[in-house]
């Protein structure tokens, strides 16, 4: 059975009358990467702050690492690493000095971790350059290194690819995946970049107006956003026969109105048309359909669909 790293029950955070997080119950398992998706102001950062002990819940509970307690204990929080909103950086110090400071703060005895992490995020060569002179991308990389300094079991990253160039985005993706796969680290990551999250996360939490709207795995999300070829003909039976004889693995789905969906042929419209014509089945409709990530997200949060 999978190990639960975080469980919140009816977690609520109110600012006056406004509920930034409303009765949110989530469960995160070890070694998985959770993409936290939501519009600006949906409650993503507030949720991350609550889990990290930076905010105190108005009601509800947060249980970390199966502690059995209803609020995070100091020893449980010590097993978390965070990069929330912007990196914790001293502009007047170098990257190495920032690493050293945070290693002292976190009580990590091994000084070698500083160099290893700087190398991991591609900042080993910054030497004497002060952090105030770093680009946004370099600051983000350093922020990720700082979040990893205590070798956390739960890593919380709020918009970690902000300001990164495409190569940096790919590197962060690889890093996050390797942390989860090789070290069994659980990662909660938020981003506005849906395609990027789609390539990184194994599970998704969609939030809107402080509420958890949907949780789903990558497989479920792929199923929801799968592209397909939709075909129709005046004789649906002949259409199906032609398809099944040509492609026994096609897995056609017959929809109301006689439309037939081909999930594995979204990119093969021309090939399908030729095969049908050869079988003397003349299509009345042939179109590539399916929801994009953005369209699916908007359909969940109740926004306007593209």
């Amino acid at each position: 059975m999978s190990e639960t790293v975080l469980r919140t029950r009816d977690l609520t955070k109110r600012y006056g009358e406004h509920a930034a997080v409303q009765a949110m119950s989530i469960r995160l398992e070890r070694g998985r990467i959770y993409g936290l998706i939501g519009r600006n102001g949906a409650g993503k950062t507030t949720l991350m702050r609550l889990i990290s002990g930076l905010s105190v819940p108005s009601s509800g509970s947060i249980e970390l690492f199966g502690s059995g307690t209803e609020q995070p204990r100091t020893e449980d929080l010590a097993r978390i690493g965070t990069l929330i909103e912007s990196p914790s950086l001293h502009g007047g110090m170098t990257a190495r000095q920032n690493m050293h400071l945070h290693r002292l703060l976190r009580g990590v005895p091994d000084p070698g971790v500083e160099e290893r992490l700087l190398e991991l995020v591609g900042l080993a060569g910054t030497a004497r350059k002060k952090v105030r002179d770093f680009s946004l991308g370099m600051r983000q990389r350093l922020g990720i290194a700082l979040a990893l300094i205590a070798d956390p079991e739960l890593l919380i990253l709020d918009e970690p690819v902000n300001g990164l160039d495409p190569q940096g985005v790919v590197e962060v993706r690889r890093l996050v995946r390797s942390l989860a796969e090789e070290r069994g680290m659980t990662v909660l990551i938020s981003s506005h970049n849906l395609p990027e999250l789609f390539q990184t996360a194994t599970d998704y939490l969609i939030v809107e107006s402080g509420e958890l709207r949907l949780t789903l795995t990558l497989d479920e999300l792929e199923a929801q956003t799968q592209q397909y070829l939709e075909v129709a003909a005046s004789d649906t039976a002949a259409l199906l026969t032609a398809i099944e004889e040509t492609w026994p693995e096609a897995e056609p789905r017959v929809m109301p109105g006689g439309r037939v969906r081909l999930p594995h042929h979204a990119e093969k419209a021309e090939e399908v048309l030729r095969a049908l014509v050869a079988a003397d089945v003349w299509p009345t409709r042939l179109a590539r359909e399916g929801e994009s990530l953005e369209s699916f997200f908007l359909s969940v949060v109740g926004g306007e669909r593209s």
Binding site: L54, L77, L89, H90
Partner: peptide
């Protein structure tokens, strides 16, 4: 301001 307080609070409460 520098947010180094985040790591401090995670480490020692």
């Amino acid at each position: 301001e520098t947010k180094s307080v985040h790591n401090s609070l995670l480490a020692s409460g």
